[in-house]
Computed example of a mutant assay.
Amino acid sequence: MTDVVSAAWLADRLGDVRLVDVRDAWEFDGIGHLPGAASIPFDEFRSADGDVGMLPGRDVWEDLLSAAGISAGDDIVAYDDMHGVFAARFLVTALLYGHDPEKLHLLDGDFSAWNQQYETTSEASDLPEATYDVTDPEKSPLVDFETVDAALDDDEVVIVDTRDPDEFDDGHLPGAVNLDWRELVDDETRGLKPRKELDAILDAAGLTPDRRIVLYCNTARRISHTYVVLSHLGYEHVEFYEGSLTEWEARDGRIVEE
């Protein structure tokens, strides 16, 4: 399962993992980055054909990871400076393109948390030569419009809207529960809240490990973070509606306003 790792965990393994920095290129160069990290800005791994939030395409993904010195068998640790939400989108994209979920890790607390404890650098990283080959995942969490529409009438499914409460009130899928992805993050540490707090928050929202869970937001960025967190916590029945509200509204899906 894709997991969340501490700065201390990463510090002990810097030479054994491939680091991906998804911040803007000017931040990578100007502010500095983790030693050995490759820069793959968020905008580079989103679809360029107008489908905001959608996958970039197999060829684009292979080129990006090959240029970053990453091979299909590598352990990858991704980070950003936004509590992990952009880095999580990178990791879910890797998962959907067949990377082993056991080799995908989100840095807990993002760049700022690392910077408080360990050294960063502005020097260019010496990246190895690599050829990345996309494969089909053994099991994909992706679900489509029709699957989500059918799930609305299934009492065994929890539909989760990971946007903020104001967005939720403006319009959401019928029966959805609102769990703002930021509720799982500690603003002070910039990382995940303690396990007991996470369990209490998730339980209050009806998200228990035995339930089938379907996640959506607007463009699949925020659900990526929630997906990674639930995976890290051992949830096995989590589905990822990548089209989210962008597709849902375009296809006249049912919407409830509060």
Rank of each mutant, 00 (worst) to 15 (best):
R211W: 09
V228L: 15
H99A: 15
K193L: 10
R23M: 08
D126K: 11
T208P: 05
D187H: 05
E146P: 04
A67Q: 13
I159N: 00
K193H: 06
H237S: 13
P194M: 03
A250L: 01
T162Y: 04
T93K: 03
D186I: 00
R190H: 15
D16V: 03
H172N: 08
R23Q: 14
R254A: 13
V158L: 13
L95R: 12
D110W: 11
E258W: 12
R221I: 08
T219E: 05
D153R: 01
T131Q: 13
E183I: 10
S244D: 08
G253Q: 08
A113N: 06
M54T: 10
G98S: 10
D16C: 10
H33C: 04
H99N: 05
G253S: 12
V214T: 00
A204C: 03
E183L: 11
L142P: 02
W61L: 13
R46G: 09
V160R: 04
T120A: 14
D81K: 07
S244F: 00
G15P: 01
A78E: 12
L184R: 00
H232A: 13
D16G: 08
L173Y: 05
S122N: 10
H105E: 04
E247M: 02
A220G: 05
D161K: 01
G50H: 11
E236H: 14
R222F: 06
H225T: 03
T147L: 02
G109W: 05
G15E: 03
T2K: 08
E247D: 14
F240W: 06
V185T: 04
V214P: 02
P101T: 06
E188M: 03
L173D: 05
L173R: 02
I76Y: 03
L230P: 00
I31S: 14
L142Y: 03
D252N: 12
I76E: 00
D133C: 09
F45N: 01
A204K: 13
E129H: 11
L65K: 06
H172R: 13
E197A: 08
D154N: 14
E247Q: 07
L10Y: 00
D144M: 12
Y97H: 07
K103L: 13
D24Y: 08
R58Y: 02
S244W: 00
E138L: 13
T189N: 01
L127I: 03
E167P: 03
D108M: 09
D133K: 15
L207I: 07
F111Q: 01
E247C: 04
N178D: 11
Q117S: 14
E123I: 10
W248F: 06
W114N: 10
F28N: 00
E258R: 00
S122I: 12
